[in-house]
């Protein structure tokens, strides 16, 4: 009835869903990232690498290194892989960069869309589940080597604490406690996080812990980039608390990174975890 005149198409007036993704699936499926198919190869597109998250007293820290690789080539040395999905949620992404960035862009529209239509934000579990569904839609491409694996960190306003959710390529969603990492350097980062973090630590300590973990990942994984003091390229670090999502300033990071380098000049393997004390 309302088509063909330049007005709002009738599908827009249907009130049965508050989900932007579902709406696009019905109305304009070609806009969705999972509608793209075809033979692919891992080496064709840049890959993002290590993302880490750790909780602290007032919330959660989410951080990522700045390197994107294409096979053995460094595709970009200052890529950003940590994004604000909404005021109280951040997403870090490892894997195929183009797909991952598009996934986060759609996810943040999804959250805002729901909030505007329903007049209330989704619960953090609701957000985590939505991301899971969207990830499952990418399974076809993931099977062809273009996988994107997010790490969701958010502040739970009901419980009053930071929470971390990890995913697998099939959309499996797992809640993590205290800390987690994803991406090619994640094993090295996780070992480092495990030894350095303490539950209930303050924000400054949590920032130092993620910087150390990303340094350790870069130390042993060629696809993870360490802090670049010559160019002033530092990891993206975000703090998510009751006050919202906030990126830690370059000055504050620069200071923490220089301090870490000074220490590593003395002990290249990083801080010594105490044993048998």
């Amino acid at each position: 009835m309302l088509n063909g005149t330049g007005g709002i198409p009738s599908g827009f007036l249907d009130t049965s869903t508050s989900s932007f993704t579902e709406f696009l699936q019905r109305h304009t499926p070609q806009l969705l990232p999972d509608a793209v198919t075809g033979a692919t190869n891992e080496q064709l597109a840049p890959h993002g690498t290590t993302i880490v998250a750790v909780t602290f007293a007032d919330g959660v820290i989410l951080a990522g290194d700045r390197r994107a690789t294409m096979g053995n080539v460094i595709a970009q040395r200052d890529i950003e892989k940590v994004f604000a999905a909404d005021d109280h949620t951040g997403v870090g992404i490892a894997g195929s960069a183009g797909i991952a960035v598009e996934l986060v862009r759609l996810f943040s529209v999804e959250l805002e869309h729901y909030e505007k239509i329903e007049g209330a934000a989704l619960s953090i579990e609701g957000k985590a589940n939505r991301l899971s569904t969207m990830l499952r839609g990418n399974l076809g491409l993931a099977m062809q080597g273009l996988a994107a694996v997010p790490l969701l960190a958010g502040y739970d306003e009901v419980r009053g604490c930071g929470r971390i959710f990890s995913y697998d390529v099939t959309g499996g969603r797992y809640e993590e406690h205290d800390f987690h990492s994803v991406g090619s350097g994640s094993y090295f980062a996780r070992g480092s996080l495990k030894k350095l973090q303490t539950p209930g630590q303050d924000e400054q300590r949590a920032i130092e812990v993620v910087l150390q973990a990303l340094y350790d990942a870069a130390d042993d994984d060629s696809a993870t980039g360490g802090p670049d003091l010559t160019r002033g390229i530092f990891p993206v670090v975000a703090s998510i608390t009751a006050a919202g999502f906030a990126r830690i300033s370059e000055e504050r990071l620069g200071e923490a990174v220089r301090e870490m380098f000074d220490e590593r000049m003395q002990r290249p393997d990083g801080p010594l975890a105490p044993v048998g004390e």
């Binding site: 709002i8 007036l13 932007f20 709406f23 304009t28 529209v109 805002e112 869309h113 505007k116 239509i117």
Partner: peptide, 9 residues
């Protein structure tokens, strides 16, 4: 709701 959808799309 239609306006929010149109704008978001």
């Amino acid at each position: 709701v239609a306006g929010v959808r149109l704008a978001d799309m």
